[in-house]
Design a binder for these strands. Sequence first.
DNA 1: CTTATTTAAGACATATTAGTCTTAATTAAA
DNA 2: TTTAATTAAGACTAATATGTCTTAAATAAG
Lengths: 148, 148
Amino acid sequence: MSLRIFSNSSVYALRALMYLVSRREKQKYISIKEMSETLDISFHFLTKALQPLTHKGILMSSRGPAGGVSFLKAPEEVTLMEIILILEGEDFFKSCMLGLEGCGHQRPCPVHGVWMDIKSILMKEFSSISLAMIGDKTVMQHLRLMNL
Amino acid sequence: MSLRIFSNSSVYALRALMYLVSRREKQKYISIKEMSETLDISFHFLTKALQPLTHKGILMSSRGPAGGVSFLKAPEEVTLMEIILILEGEDFFKSCMLGLEGCGHQRPCPVHGVWMDIKSILMKEFSSISLAMIGDKTVMQHLRLMNL
DNA sequence: CTTATTTAAGACATATTAGTCTTAATTAAA
DNA sequence: TTTAATTAAGACTAATATGTCTTAAATAAG
């Protein structure tokens, strides 16, 4: 297996968000159907993957013709960190590298310190990146969000 | 879900290695049975999890009475990085954060740069830690390798 | 008001990972 | 040389993650 830190569901939601923000100047709502086809993601699966984001006020959605999803919160104000905590859960960065329960300062595992450092770096990185930054970069440098 | 970068199988093997190195002064072989009971890991599962390490010359094993596993390569010379590549595969650190095929300098995804940085840090950290270091630390600070 | 379009929700199916069990092969000791 | 102990290997089962399908609810347009 290769290194992956997010579930498929989260990755799909992330890619859709990146797609959405990279063309946010167009019409108000963008349909999940369009995104699922463009990004080659199962439509129903993507629909569900995005729901926590609407529930938590990142996106808004509209049913019916010309419906879809759109940003409720300004992408400039949304960090990757915030998205990750919504998609994966608030405890995402509270794990032990060895999966031990209650591993912490009191009763640490042998790699507790290293793992803490690594998690800190991840959190710092993800907190410093907004969706708007990703969208701008994606447009300007023609970056890809799908397999070829 | 919380952050985890290794499979259960790999985590079990890592914990067993840490246990093994933290008491390497004792008898030559330590039985997998003993480790599986001490660490509360399924015996057969642990047996299989450790096999790639014997195949790759990190451990040696002996069947029969007083058998078990022991280090073939000196724990001072074995880094976490080396273990991870054996357990998870040589391509472990070649992944894309968004799971895109062929994501690289040529056709990067929007988070390619960040992800590269993160992976570099991980590789650097894991390369700088030997099993012997972990063993010494575990003994000296009475660190734990199992759930309470 | 009716229809077509779209998200929401949940049941269902499939694939992958994790874990168990059985048998075989090896080895040390009696 | 027989027996018990142990790893090796592989079939099998269970749990979880991933993906599909069906139906319901909402909404815009005619």
